[in-house]
Design a protein around this nucleic acid. Structure first.
Lengths: 331, 331
DNA sequence: CCGGTTCAGGCATACGTATGCTCACATTGA
DNA sequence: TCAATGTGAGCATACGTATGCCTGAACCGG
C-alpha cells in the first residue's frame, strides 16, 4: 500500500505537506503542490479513508437503516440515495434493524458511520433516542418517530388521497375496503387518517369489518384480499396502504379469477415504476420518491458536516394517477 | 465518545488489557476479563471500528460493485448477501461502476474496503486487473472476466435450458425469437450458446434476423418485443436472456394486445420472485439465487480472512420451471 | 534455596492522515 | 540597517485499537 509518506519521500517534502497539497491548502506554494501531485500520480497514491476517518473523527459512510430489504419499495429508494451520496463524496452502507449483531445503535457507533437515514422507523421506536444519546446524526426518511425531533423528509398524503377518493366516489363505489399499513408507523397512520377523513367529505364511510391492517408488504395485500373477497358482500374497491400491498391484492384477485376493475377496483400509494407497467396499470397516489430519496441524502450530509442547525422538514406533495385498476363500481 | 482508555481507567487496567479482554485473549485471567467487561458495559463502550481497522490493516466493509442499481435483479441479490455478511460480522457497501468519483479501483482502495464482490463484470473489464494490482481480494458473482482468475460463483445454464428447449419443441414452436444479453458478459454468452446448442439438438434453428441483443433490462425486452412482433412472420416464442427482459417482453405484448401464450410464448431466466406472481406466471429457468448470493458473501470473507488459497468456483445448477407463458405454438 | 518456567499484565509502538504550532527565510517599510 | 510582517513548510502530535516484547511475580522442581 502506498501512503502519504511514500509520496512525501518522492516529492522531497514532509508527510503533512503531502496532506496539505492534496487538500489544496492555501499555505502551500503552487510549485510544491504541483510537485506533490505529480509524485502522487506517479505512485498511484490515493489517500487511505480509514486513516483519514480516524484523524478527522468521522468517516464518509452513511448508514441506511431498514427492516425489510426484500421489500419491493426499497430498491427505488436505495438507487437514488446511493447516487446522491456518491455525488457528495459519501458511501451508502446497508443496515437491517433485525440485526443479529446486537442493537443497531451500537452497530452504528461501532462501525464508524458518520450518520444514518432511518427508513423504517416506527412511532414508538427507541432507535432515535439511542442515536440521539450517542450524538449520531440521523434523518427520518418517509416515516418519523415521536420520541425525538430530527430532520425529516416525508410525504403529505392529503392532496393525492383527496383526488383518489373523489375518483372513487365518482365511480359510484360505496362498499369500500381498505388494507392499511401498521398503526405504529407514521405513514400508516397518516394515510389511514387521510382516507377516512376525505371519504367522509364524500359522505362515504369505511365499515370496520372491511378494514385490515398489516405490514406494508405483498403478503399483507395477498392475504387481505382473500379475506375481504371472501365476505358475503365483498367491497367493490380495496384501498391499499401502498403499491406493494396493492400488488398483493391484484395477484390474489388474479388467482381467484376476480376481474379487475370489472368486479374489483384497487388503488395503491407510492406509484412504483412497476405500477405503470401494462400488465399492472395500478391506479395510485404518486409523489417524487426519487427526489425524496436524494433529499434525504443531502439532508444527512448537511447535518453530518455541521451545516444547518434547525431541524428541517421536507414534505413532498402527492397527486392521484388514474390508471386501469379503478373502474365503475359493479352494480 | 467512550474509548478503550476510558474503560481501562475505570477497570484499573491498561488500554491494551481492555483490548485483550474484549477479544477474549487467553493470556488474561478470568477475573480481569470480567472486570473489564463490566466496566465496558457500565460505560456503554463499543470498540471503534475505524481505530480497529487502521490498526489491523483492514476494515470489515465488503463492497458490492454493480452498474445498474435500478435493475430489478439486484434487490434479490443484495438482501441475502447483506444478511450473510452481517452474520459473518461484515457490512455491505454499495458501489456503482459508473462512479463519478473516479476509477472504482481507487475508490475501493481509498475507502478502506477489505474486499469486493463483482456483480456486473464484463468479459473485457479491466477492473479485475486493477484490483489484482492493488491486491484487493475479490469474487466474481454470476459473471466472470477472462483477464484474471479469482473465486467465482456462477450458474450453469445448460440443464435448465435443455429442459426449457425440450418443452419449447414439444409445444411445436419453430419460428423462434431470442433477446439475449450483451455479448461481452459471460452470462450473456453462456446462455446464448446453451440455447443455440440445445435448440440444434432438437433440430430447431435460430435465424439471425430473429435474434436481438441488449443489456439485461426491461427496456431491452420491451423494445425488442416490439421489433420482433412487427416482423411479417413474427416468432411464436421469444427466449429471453433473463426474467427482467422477459418482463419487458410481456408488457410490450400486453400493450400491443398480443395474447400470451395464445399468440406468443415467452420464457425467461433467473426465476425472480415476481415471475411466480399470478399476474406474470413466467415460464423460466431457475436456480438458487439466494444461496448463490450467500455463497459469494462467504467466499469473499474467507478470501479476506486469508483462509483458502486456491481459487474456488461454485457453479449452481439450473432447472426449468414451467408456468403459463409457454404454450402451444399457434398454427 | 535457587534457577528456570509460566502466567498476567504493562509498555511502547504501529497503522495513515490531519492539523496546531513553530521556525526559517524572504520581503517590506521606516 | 533593523524590526515587523508574511510566506512556506516542517515538527510534533492526535485519533482509537492491536500486538510484539518485556517485566515482575508466582510457582515449580531439583
Amino acid at each position: 500500500m502506498v501512503t502519504s509518506h511514500d509520496v512525501a519521500k518522492l516529492a522531497g517534502v514532509s508527510q503533512p505537506t503531502v496532506s496539505r497539497a492534496l487538500r489544496d491548502d492555501s499555505r502551500l506554494s503552487a510549485a510544491t503542490k504541483q510537485r506533490v501531485r505529480e509524485a502522487a500520480a506517479a505512485l498511484g497514491y490515493s489517500p487511505n479513508a480509514i486513516g483519514r476517518a480516524l484523524s478527522v473523527g468521522r468517516s464518509t459512510s452513511i448508514g441506511l437503516v431498514l427492516t425489510d430489504l426484500n421489500n419491493q419499495f426499497y430498491p427505488y429508494v436505495i438507487a437514488p440515495m446511493h447516487a446522491e451520496l456518491e455525488k457528495l463524496g459519501y458511501q451508502l452502507v446497508l443496515i437491517t434493524e433485525s440485526s443479529e449483531s446486537g442493537p443497531v445503535a451500537d452497530h452504528v457507533a461501532a462501525n464508524g458511520l458518520c450518520g444514518v437515514i432511518l427508513a423504517t422507523t416506527t412511532v414508538d421506536s427507541v432507535l432515535p433516542v439511542r442515536l440521539s444519546d450517542r450524538a449520531v446524526p440521523f434523518v427520518y426518511f418517509n416515516r418519523v418517530a415521536q420520541s425525538v425531533a430530527a430532520d425529516a423528509v416525508t410525504v403529505d398524503p392529503v392532496p393525492g388521497v383527496r383526488e383518489m377518493v373523489r375518483a372513487l366516489a365518482e365511480q359510484g363505489h360505496e362498499r369500500i375496503g381498505a388494507i392499511f399499513g401498521p398503526r405504529n408507523t407514521s405513514t400508516g397512520e397518516e394515510r389511514e387518517t387521510a382516507v377516512r377523513d376525505l371519504l367522509q367529505e364524500q359522505d362515504l364511510t369505511l365499515v370496520s369489518r372491511n378494514v385490515l391492517h398489516g405490514p406494508f408488504d405483498f403478503q399483507t395485500g395477498h392475504a387481505g384480499a382473500r379475506e375481504l373477497l371472501d365476505r358475503p358482500k365483498p367491497p367493490t374497491v380495496i384501498v391499499c396502504g401502498n403499491d406493494v400491498v396493492a400488488l398483493g391484492v391484484l395477484n390474489a384477485a388474479a388467482e381467484l379469477g376476480t376481474r379487475v376493475p370489472d368486479e374489483l377496483s384497487v388503488v395503491g400509494f407510492d406509484d412504483l415504476p412497476s405500477s405503470a407497467w401494462a400488465l399492472i396499470q395500478l391506479s395510485t397516489v404518486a409523489y417524487d420518491l426519487d427526489e425524496m430519496s436524494r433529499a434525504a441524502a443531502r439532508l444527512i450530509v448537511e447535518r453530518v458536516e455541521g451545516r444547518g442547525k434547525e431541524h428541517r422538514k421536507a414534505v413532498f406533495p402527492t397527486h392521484y394517477v388514474p390508471r386501469a385498476t379503478l373502474g365503475p363500481a359493479p352494480r
